[in-house]
Amino acid sequence: MVRATRGIHLPTPNDSNQWFNDTVPMEFTRALLVQAHAYGEDVDAMLRAARFPFDPLRQSAQTAFVSREQYSRLCVELVRALGDESGGVMPDVQTPVGTTRLILLSMLNSSNLSAAIRRAIEFNATCRVRQGVEVINRLKVDADGKEATLSYLYGEDLPGVQHSVLCNLAMWLRFCGWLIGQHIDISSATCAGPEPEFTAGVRHFFPCPVQYEQPTNSVSFSARHLEAELLRDEPQLQEFLKLAPYHVIIEPQASTFSVTHRIRKILGDDFRAEMPSFEELTSLLNMSARTLRRRLEKEGTSYQRIKDNARRDAAISLLSREGLTVSEVAERVGFSDPSAFHRSFKKWTGLSPGSYR
């Protein structure tokens, strides 16, 4: 059996704004099958078990997308075939089938998200089967109490898999966001390994600056999220798990609990027209300015940050398309001055638009 040490290389979908998409680009499905091939698994059997009507690896497959149900079923079959819920990404630290569900159950009924994450860290430290690989998992809040950092260092002598470990941290934060009904925006990230040859997977999870060759893998976000109460129960978790691969890998599940989500729906994905002012937004949401500011602060964000992130996500989607110049992308996301777009995009992602493309 061939050891897959490079992890699954995920592409960046380029069909439309990702915030409300409910299909899966075929490249993501092919990435799962490539991983199965790397471990010598029977891909045809996996496809039959996942009820796929065609083989996505064959040239004859013309469709560009699969449903979220198909993708989730195929993820489950890969996990079953490998006997490892990490999908073979960390070959020396296996996660037996069923472990993730037990960790998630252990997080329910915690007093807040901070307690839930710490409980998961404690569970994770005891349940995984390690083969002489040191794993360090921590949650810290800075001295000002404003920024939280979740870190995970997996085997310092295994640099080739660290970017996949970093992506797993992003997946965990997506689940945490579902638990509290809020979108958790990652402000920055570090990777304990070198920048991978294929960066599309990292970009998919991190539309923010990522520093490589750092002491640990980490994701930073507003500490205000840690104070949030958990809004989900066990029956809701059982429903979530049916499509969990889609929601933690492709698209986080939108939450009507979140005022951030409601504002993103109002903003849409066409930014050539002027965005609503804060006063106009309060009227659209039927909230007072004081209430809206308090709700946004509780979710660890602001109206300006939501607007910036909306334009950033649209720009990333447009830059991945063929036929659009950087100037045209700038115009579509509301920048009349291309140089201003360059400055903003570099601030958002750590890269210039040209380098990102």
Rank of each mutant, 00 (worst) to 15 (best):
L243V: 07
K146G: 14
E85P: 00
A192R: 02
F205T: 05
S344H: 12
F345H: 08
I8A: 07
A200G: 01
E134N: 02
T256V: 07
Y39R: 14
F20C: 14
C75I: 03
I121R: 05
S277P: 07
I316S: 04
A115I: 02
A49P: 01
A200E: 03
A223R: 05
L108F: 02
S164W: 02
G193V: 15
G201M: 04
G132Q: 14
G87P: 00
D157C: 09
W178C: 12
T29M: 13
V248W: 01
C208T: 14
A192W: 10
D157W: 10
E251V: 06
A81M: 07
C191E: 11
V76Q: 09
F335I: 03
Q35T: 15
D270M: 07
L166Y: 08
S320E: 09
H247G: 03
S86D: 02
L47R: 05
Q35V: 03
H342K: 11
T100S: 05
S339A: 08
W178F: 15
P338N: 10
N124A: 04
P338G: 05
G177Q: 10
I263R: 02
R343P: 00
R272S: 15
Q131I: 02
R290C: 00
P215Q: 06
M171A: 14
T301D: 15
L226W: 04
K298Y: 11
L281Y: 04
Q59F: 10
R332L: 13
A115S: 02
T95N: 03
P194D: 14
I8G: 04
R80S: 12
T149R: 13
R128P: 00
Q253F: 07
F278C: 04
T12A: 10
A289N: 04
N124I: 01
K347R: 14
S255F: 03
T216E: 13
E280M: 01
S188F: 09
L292W: 01
N109D: 12
A192T: 07
T63C: 12
Y152M: 12
T99R: 00
K346V: 00
T199E: 06
T216S: 11
R3E: 15
A273W: 05
L10Q: 01
V24T: 13
M46F: 09
Q182F: 09
R290W: 05
K298R: 15
L285P: 00
L243G: 02
F28L: 08
T260P: 00
D92A: 01
T23N: 13
V129I: 14
A192P: 08
E251M: 06
M46H: 03
F175A: 06
F221D: 10
Y356M: 02
R312S: 07
F335K: 01
T63N: 15
S277M: 03
G83E: 07
T126S: 06
V133H: 07
G323T: 04
M46Q: 08
